[in-house]
Computed example of a mutant assay.
Amino acid sequence: MINKITELFNIKYPIIQAGMVWNSGWRLASAASNSGILGLLGAGSMYPEVLRTHIQKCKKATNKPFGVNVPMLYPNVQEIMDIIIEEGVKIVFTSAGNPKTWTSWLQERGVTVVHVVSSVKFALKAQEAGVDAIVAEGFEAGGHNGRDETTTLALIPMVREQITIPLIAAGGIATGKAMLACMVLGADGVQIGSRFVASNESSAHDDFKQVVIDAKEGDTQLTLKELAPVRLIKNKFYNDVQQLYKEGATIEQLKELLGRARAKKGMFEGDLVEGELEIGQISGLIHDIKPVAQIVDDIIKEFEEAKTRVCLL
Rank of each mutant, 00 (worst) to 15 (best):
L167F: 02
S199I: 03
N239I: 03
L153S: 02
I85E: 12
V92N: 13
G143W: 08
L232F: 08
F303G: 03
E304A: 11
Q191I: 01
G142M: 03
F122G: 01
L312M: 14
L313M: 14
Q243R: 14
I300M: 07
A29P: 04
Q281F: 04
P99Y: 12
Q56Y: 04
H144G: 10
S194C: 06
T152S: 12
I156K: 10
Y238G: 07
E217W: 05
L180V: 09
R231G: 06
R309G: 06
A170D: 02
E128F: 14
V184T: 14
F93M: 10
W102K: 10
A136W: 00
I2F: 13
V21I: 11
A136E: 00
A136T: 00
T308E: 15
G248H: 02
H54I: 00
L312A: 15
I300N: 01
V135E: 09
N3D: 11
G270C: 11
E226M: 08
F237E: 09
K255P: 01
P14E: 02
M267N: 01
V116E: 14
D271P: 10
V159C: 08
K301F: 12
G44S: 09
I156W: 14
G138N: 06
T101K: 15
D132G: 01
I85Y: 09
E128W: 15
N235Q: 13
N10R: 15
Y47E: 11
A187G: 02
T152P: 07
K255L: 03
H144I: 08
L40I: 09
I299M: 15
A133V: 07
G110V: 08
M81Y: 10
N10T: 06
E305V: 13
T150C: 11
A169I: 01
K100T: 08
H54E: 15
Y47F: 08
K255T: 00
G280H: 02
I213Q: 12
I168V: 04
G218K: 13
I134T: 01
V116M: 14
I163L: 04
P229D: 11
I80Y: 01
F66G: 02
E79K: 14
I300P: 00
G176A: 12
E86A: 01
G97W: 11
G143Q: 07
M20L: 12
E108K: 13
T250V: 03
L277N: 09
E274L: 07
E128K: 15
D297H: 15
L257P: 03
M72P: 10
K225D: 05
V292E: 05
Q253M: 02
G186V: 00
A263Q: 04
I16H: 00
M20Y: 09
K307V: 02
E226F: 03
K125S: 07
E49Y: 03
H144R: 14
G19H: 01
N235I: 04
I163V: 11
E7S: 12
D132P: 00
V70N: 05
A31D: 07
T220F: 03
I295F: 14
Q191P: 05
L313W: 12
T220R: 06
E108M: 10
E79S: 10
I55T: 04
D207T: 12
V89L: 12
L312I: 08
A96Y: 09
C58R: 05
V241T: 13
E217C: 05
K236S: 13
E128G: 04
A154Y: 03
T220K: 07
Y245D: 02
N69H: 08
G142E: 06
Q78K: 14
K290S: 05
A181N: 08
R195E: 08
I286F: 06
M72A: 10
A198P: 00
E269W: 07
